[in-house]
Amino acid sequence: MMECYILAGGKSKRFGEDKTLFSIGGVPCIQRMVHEAKKVCNKIFVVSKNTEKYSFLKDVELVKDIFERQLPLIGLYTALNHTKEDRIVVLSADMPLIKSELISYLWNRYCGKIILYEVGGKTYTFFGVYPKKTLKALEEYLKAGGVKALDFVRAVGYTPVKEDDIAHLGISPKAFINMNTKEDARIILEMYEGSKAEDFGYDL
């Protein structure tokens, strides 16, 4: 069973409004992500401190963060604690350009430990496949006061997937954009309105 957990517990401080609900072509960012993930995943979960605001999403299970602490790793902990599968797909809720092919590629490359994309010099800690067995190490890391996701995955070890590994897929590196700021949103909207608009699901 291929389960996908979309982590949507952030406050969007830099963005100035809830970026997961930001409209792209009349469709909320997170809805576009759900749509793409559904192409390859059997079940979709959205993890958040406020699940009610995502009640409009169809065929999605909403999971409330276990702890109130405002930290992306809390969402990951909640997801790993919730699943009964041996591994899960984990996505940050602010990546509306993701493609299902990228999700499938990670899943198929999985070899027993965390696997993440490294694109443009950045490690995408919340675009990856995480094994259930990571839960214990994450719990210990959080109890010790750890807060940084990158420090955690470096400590436990992970397999990187780089740009050269996925060149054959023909997908632009812009598919990895995290929509953290309004400038990021501007780039995404320009892509939607431009020649690549067909990639963004007019059928939504």
Rank of each mutant, 00 (worst) to 15 (best):
L150Y: 11
G120P: 03
V90E: 01
V129S: 11
L204R: 11
K39A: 06
C29N: 14
E17A: 11
G128Y: 06
L189P: 00
T51I: 15
I98M: 15
Y124I: 04
V63C: 07
K143W: 01
E68V: 07
C29H: 01
D18S: 10
Y130A: 02
Y158P: 14
E3F: 01
E85Q: 13
V34Y: 08
Y110D: 02
N178F: 12
I187G: 00
A137C: 07
K113Y: 08
S104G: 14
E198W: 13
E68M: 03
Y158N: 15
V129N: 09
G112F: 11
T123H: 02
T78E: 10
Y110A: 00
T78C: 08
A149I: 04
V161C: 01
L204T: 06
T83W: 03
G10V: 06
T125N: 10
K148R: 15
Y54I: 08
K43P: 00
E193F: 08
Y77Q: 12
E140K: 14
R32C: 03
V161A: 02
W107G: 06
F200L: 15
G9D: 10
E198T: 07
M95D: 01
N42C: 02
G26T: 10
F126D: 11
I88E: 03
R109K: 15
Q31K: 15
K13W: 06
V89F: 02
K162T: 08
K132V: 08
N180A: 11
N108A: 05
K143C: 02
V46F: 09
F67Q: 09
Y130Q: 03
I166W: 03
N178L: 13
S104C: 08
